[in-house]
Amino acid sequence: MSTTLSYDRLSEEEKHSQFMERIESGEKIEADDWMPKDYRMTLIKLISMHGISEIMGALPEKEWVPKAPSLRRKLGIMAKVQDEMGHGQLLLRVAEDLMKPMGKTREEIMQDLFRGDLKFHNVFHMPAPTWGDAGLIGWLVDGAAIITQTNMLKASYGPYARALKRICAEEVFHAQHGEAIIMALAEGTEEQRALIQDAIDRWWESLLMFFGPASATTTGTSKQDTTIKYRIRTKTNEELRQAFLDKYIPRVLSLGLTIPDETLHYDKEKQQWVYQQPDWNEFKNIVRNNGPKSKDRLDLRITAYENNAWVREALSPDGAVV
């Protein structure tokens, strides 16, 4: 602890510099601690988007829950999608506590989502038309998510770091769940192999987009500098994308699958992957809820939320009927 003085007597600037000292020395910030408004807003934006993406991310996979092709797969994917909802729960609780001083609750988070003010990850706007997609989401989309989430395990904000610790522990199961589906398909019939190759071809661009643009000049917005400054994350978008390519390209190729980018190669000198840039204008378009499945998934979420409103009203402790 670097502070012994009464907090109330400190000026905003003194509080700010003490705050920066604390996070730079590796201290964790807790929900009720003083924090710069910029820090709070950055966290709210990051964590509410992360949380709601988990909730929306359950939807493309949800399609395959009742359809999974064996008892074991049905159980596995139920548990996996349940975890996504569970991760959403953890993250939204963290975001909700940050929003509380502003009088906001989960109700506002949901309404923000429905109005289109709260965005969710680009990958969850995409269709998942086959069982191959169910496998690919578990394998590569979760793989990408693991890379970004482990990058924030030491985040300066304690509640987020603790939620991520729980989440990452479960992601290990998700990674293996995805690999199990993919392995069965890869070692299966021609038709089964085609299911994964089609899914890779369909998802490749979305996977590259997952990490966001390399710099703000690409799309006009990027929070990466702020999040690095505040010790929320350590690596840049491009470093994360490179780490993903490092880990997963050899695995994809080892199964005899191909990546739909003829220009893709490893530059030994620069020690990085060179790849065809995805269409970043399309990325902006997708995250503004203009992706192929954006409307359907939002509709599904809105329908479910409104359809159950009577339950929440009925059990609201102060919800006396007038």
């Binding site: 009742p66 139920m78 548990a79 999608v81 909802m85 729960q89 479910a304 929440r312």
Partner: peptide, 28 residues
């Protein structure tokens, strides 16, 4: 399992799914 993601609130979605997994496990 068709309810997954559609329950009255997120916490219940998680709890309900466990019951469905248990029940499917019993069927197995």
């Amino acid at each position: 399992s068709e309810w997954l993601g559609l329950a009255p609130h997120i916490e219940e979605d998680v709890a309900f799914s466990s019951i469905n997994q248990d029940t499917m496990g019993h069927a197995a």
